[in-house]
Amino acid sequence: MKIPYYPGCTLKTKAKDLEDSAIAAAKVLDIEMEELPRWNCCGTVYSLASDDLIHQVGSIRNLVRVKEQGANQVVTLCSMCYNTLKRANEFFLADEEKQDRINRYMDEEIDYTGDVAVVHLLEILRDEVGMEKIKAAVKKPLTGLKVSPYYGCMLLRPASIGIDNTERPTVMEDLLRALGAEVIDDPYKTECCGAYQTVNRKDVVVTCVHSILTSAQRNGAEVIALSCPLCDFNLDNRQKDILQTYKGFHPIPVLYFTQLMAIAFGLDESVCRFELSYNDPRPLLKSKGLIE
């Protein structure tokens, strides 16, 4: 299947590892993710103000770009892009007067009617491909690799747009099991990493992330799997700051779920772009015989 793909800006720079591994792994499952020829920043965070229309325009414009491709569905990889685009569509659908104002403001674009479905790659893997087909595509099962999935917030909350149960999601667990990994059930998997406080209050992020990582480690995790470049920065790069506050902390590698798919599908290591990780995951993967 072919599906229009909205990357968002971080996937073109610091999260190239997410984009490259996702596109390559999806191809193995006959999913062609076709980048929208034109797109703009979604705004990163959904505006929570009911009277703020201007911050919905960027997202709605991206949905218009999907319509221009003759499509009714768009796939995202970044959890925050997913959340922002999907909630913007919900906001738009809820109020006809606001629809009219947004459409009149976007005077160059065709009028939008709210009919683009925003989906995350994890939903396609679960609902369209199915775990059986994923299992069948595995060439190098992740046997013995203890992976703790981390959802964060934006894939799950609020419930109206969540891809899974808000408190007990299982989609990443099912995927990782299909890849042959040993899944660690960690109670902190839906706890926020501290998000945008990483800019001016990184101490808040350090406390949040320390709780998340040490909980996963206590439960036996050797590596964390996630889907958001902001979670990734906070869980991976901020370990440098965690080490300064918590002396006994042991670093742990953090990967995108798509990198684990690429490895399990036996793809060339270069699509994983491991050099972009702060904590190099290669020694662990080598010790498990998963990469050369």
Binding site: G8, C9, C78, Y196, Q197, V199, N200, P229, L230
Partner: peptide, 22 residues
């Protein structure tokens, strides 16, 4: 007012989301 070294270190997603909230 954000220091250049910090801006170089941070992914766009962090900068944009922070400024949208703050």
């Amino acid at each position: 007012a954000l220091p250049t070294e910090l801006l170089a270190e941070l992914p766009q997603i962090a900068i944009v989301s922070n400024l949208r909230k703050m």
